[in-house]
Amino acid sequence: MVLGCKGGSNSASEADVAKAIKKADEAKILMNDGKFEEAALKFEEAYKTNTDNFDYLMHAIESYNQKGEYEKSLNLLEKYSSDHTDSPVYFQLKAGVYQLMGDMKSAKQNIQKAYEVWEPIEINDLNNESDLMPLTGYAMLEAGAGYQQKALQRMNDALKLEWLSERNKEYLQQIRNEIEYYDSKSSTILEYTNDIIICTTNLDSLKAVLFKNHINVSGSSFKEKQAGKVYVAERFRRGIEKLNITPCQDSIQ
């Protein structure tokens, strides 16, 4: 979940906005060509031209990360830190870089800082579908910061809202399940893990049982519909074991 950050002290003129867009378009071409460092520099130019658009800085960091230049990503964040230290996305980005570096302690510290500066989203603040994504973003961050039960309660309360559509409920249930089975050793809720594969002759029945027990099915399952396989992320292992289900393969190699 990414929120907007406070930009520079002055809003960009229309001319600067146009210049920044042009630079960003050039940077995207460089990225597509695999020229990640050149792309990062061009995205930074776009950001300096229009500091109201934090996406440019995010793309610059993404470009450095693609090349494995994590120190440059951190240096870039520090370079413009005065503009963004009151926004959770700044600390979330730092956490992401530290995670890529394998420094989980620093990643956790920045997740905690992001949580501290993110204004809580309460159930009474939810009025329509557009409010659900900020809610789930906050709840996932809350769990990552060490408040898993609070986050879980927040999601369960949201699921009681009368105006939710079936699609809304399915979305909230998916995130609720991720939070319920979150492993505090991970730095993020949706951290990638290998899938556990369960073989079955009755896909619909198995999926129904898993759903009833708050276990999400991976998107890979829908590609394998004819193969009689269901893919479940490693984080749901204890739920599978509780159901006495034996995987036919523990992970995708």
Rank of each mutant, 00 (worst) to 15 (best):
F236A: 03
G96Y: 01
K6S: 10
Y182Q: 07
A139G: 05
A107F: 03
S186F: 12
E191L: 04
L135C: 07
Q148W: 02
E170Q: 14
I197Y: 06
Q92F: 12
A15W: 08
D86A: 12
I252S: 10
E116P: 00
G137E: 06
L203C: 04
P88F: 11
I121W: 07
I196T: 01
Q99P: 00
V89P: 03
Q109H: 04
V209R: 12
E241G: 04
A114C: 02
Q249R: 14
L203K: 10
I240R: 09
F36H: 12
Y171K: 11
K225V: 12
A107L: 08
H59Q: 15
M104H: 10
V89T: 15
E71A: 12
I121D: 07
K42Y: 05
M133Q: 13
W163G: 01
S165Y: 07
I61N: 08
M1W: 12
Y115M: 09
D195P: 02
K105M: 09
K207A: 09
D86W: 12
L190R: 09
K72D: 15
A39M: 11
A20K: 08
G144C: 01
R238V: 05
R176V: 04
R167N: 14
D16C: 01
S130F: 11
A107C: 15
F236M: 05
Y147K: 15
S106F: 01
R238M: 05
L172E: 03
Y181W: 15
R238K: 13
A20Y: 10
K113N: 09
E26V: 13
A60S: 14
N213A: 03
K48V: 14
L76T: 01
V97N: 10
C199P: 05
A227G: 00
N75G: 05
